[in-house]
Simulated scan of single mutants.
Amino acid sequence: MTQTTSYAFGAGDVFLTSAGNAPALVGTLQDVEIDISASTQMLYGQNQFAELVARGEGKITGKAKTGKIDLGLISTLYSGQSPDLTGYEKLVKLEAHTIPASSSYIVTASHITGGITDQGVYYAAGGQLTPVTAGSEATGKYSVNLTTGVYTFAAGDEGVAIFLNYTYVATTGSQMLVTNQAMGVNPVFQLFMQQGATAVAGRQNVTMRLYA
């Protein structure tokens, strides 16, 4: 007798393959859902009830949830583009400094590769400072040079502890560049899924391959 049922434990495994790219495993898989559906079409004549009922348009859709952010997988399979491996924008949060006692009252961010983007300055004791243009600094107000990462404060904030928040371009890691492509451009990939209980004697796996 041929066994046609199986027990599923866990989310299984999913591999995706697109043209020009190596097969990619969807890592830390949490959930997979495949929906197969079709419409029902009815043929009517002059009578009230249909003379023929048949299946019409059909479709197969699916989705998978993963707990692992894989930039290469997202980029090549969803946008059809390779990730840009030139670094990425990294956030520095609550970088502690004390405004020095000097005539310039400047603080320099610890990371300035490729310039920075200011994300706000806060007093360590609480409260946010206001960004202004260079030369307009006053107590509770500061200016910043985004190229050099130099923050300038006023004499009224001398010796005060602050936190800097900013982003800079890290030289490691990768970033995903999505271009505005013409409508109709649609990456196509093949999906292979396996789910089952291979460790249980007599149980079978359930596998599925969707070619496009």
Rank of each mutant, 00 (worst) to 15 (best):
K141H: 04
A212S: 12
D31L: 07
M193S: 11
Q81P: 00
V32P: 00
A124Y: 02
L71Q: 11
A50N: 02
K93Q: 12
G114R: 10
M42H: 14
Q46R: 13
G196F: 06
S104K: 15
T108L: 01
Y123S: 05
V169F: 12
Q128H: 05
P131I: 15
T76I: 06
E57W: 07
V160C: 02
G87Q: 09
T4M: 12
I162E: 00
D157K: 07
G126W: 01
V206I: 14
M42S: 13
T5P: 00
G149K: 06
T66C: 05
G135S: 04
D35E: 15
A22W: 02
G127T: 05
N186C: 09
S143H: 04
E158K: 08
P83S: 09
A212G: 05
V92M: 13
G114Q: 08
L16K: 05
D35A: 15
Q175L: 05
Q41I: 10
F15R: 12
D70S: 08
L146M: 09
T4Y: 14
L146Q: 12
V144S: 04
D84I: 08
Q128A: 15
P187R: 08
Y123W: 04
R209Q: 12
V53A: 04
K90W: 06
F15G: 01
Y166W: 02
A22M: 06
T40W: 04
L77N: 03
Q175Y: 02
Y166V: 04
G135W: 06
A134F: 03
V107F: 02
E137R: 01
V132L: 07
K93A: 13
G87M: 11
T198K: 15
V188S: 12
A170F: 01
L77W: 01
R203E: 14
P23M: 12
Q204M: 12
M176F: 10
F49E: 08
S75G: 07
R203A: 13
T98A: 07
L43E: 11
T5K: 11
E95M: 04
T172P: 00
I106L: 08
F153Y: 05
I69H: 10
A124N: 06
Q48L: 13
L71R: 11
Q81S: 12
A161T: 02
P100S: 10
V26M: 04
K93L: 13
F189V: 01
V188Y: 05
A212I: 00
H111K: 15
L16Y: 04
T66W: 06
A11C: 03
A161K: 09
G149C: 03
